[in-house]
Amino acid sequence: MDPMENSWELSKENVQPLRQGRKIANLTAALQPVNGQEGGLTRVQQEKQAFEAELRMYSGDDPFSVWDRYIKWTEQNFPKGGKDGSLSTLLERCLLFFKDDKRYSNDHRYLQAWIKFAGMTNQPVDIYNFLHDQAIGAQVSLFWEAWAWELEQEGDTKKADAVYMEGIQKQAQPVELLVRKQKEFQARVARATLEGGVPQQSAGMSGTEAQRVTLGGLRGQGKKHQAPVSRTGASTKVYSTGLGVKPCAPPQVGQAFSVFSEDNPQDQVIPAPTGEWTNPPLPRVTSRENTHKPGKWTEAKIEG
């Protein structure tokens, strides 16, 4: 068998799976060791330059199409993900470029790029909040679905459900997809509450019984009121002092019940778009820290 054909199998750990799958030809080519061509550029570098040039020269009426191809090309040709192909930088450039372009605010491809970008950040929900505020993707069911999915992952099932409702109400296209995804979501939540409810209780019970209490009172045994050997259950004093140590409650998966409150109607779960939030919460901005540029120590002066 041709060794070229199966090189993907040898480096399978170095390949990040893609949602839409990979093209095997690109994958095999990307995994080949780079032949050091003297002075010349590798195939990947050449193609990258061609894309950059096309971005500058493009004069048609769908400038996003070039970006779209460029992004997909990067994904396919840098299988390792991460900083290798600097995909996140590319996405950021592209997303900011078209942020205020109304032509693309409900474009399927543009939304997909946002979703990819959100998936690469630590706070994907922030990105969706921003998009919602800017009314980007309000007509595309893909956006609502991705947003609800992230909320579900964070355990905020109530808000996730509200997001589905909002999307359906706005008649995002195709609306059937949203209806279907909402049903699947509700089935998942129902299942999680059913499955999570029963064992949670029994685990909690045995947990408190078996554990010794920190700084808890003990009942003395015998005439001399000696401390008992077994220090759980009946031998502890019932009264509780200070802060009781309770086993940490496992994160709630589904809401057992919701408290009705008059001044908390549905539309406050998801605030209406204001359009005031103009800068997207990019990770390089939101997680910025004070850093000093490295410099010569000998030249440092005390200020003041």
Binding site: W8, E9, K12, V15, P17, L18, R19
Partner: peptide, 14 residues
């Protein structure tokens, strides 16, 4: 083994 490794390139079944 190859069947198992094929997640490398197969699309996600969503």
């Amino acid at each position: 083994r190859q069947i198992t490794a094929s997640v490398t390139f197969l699309p996600l079944l969503e």
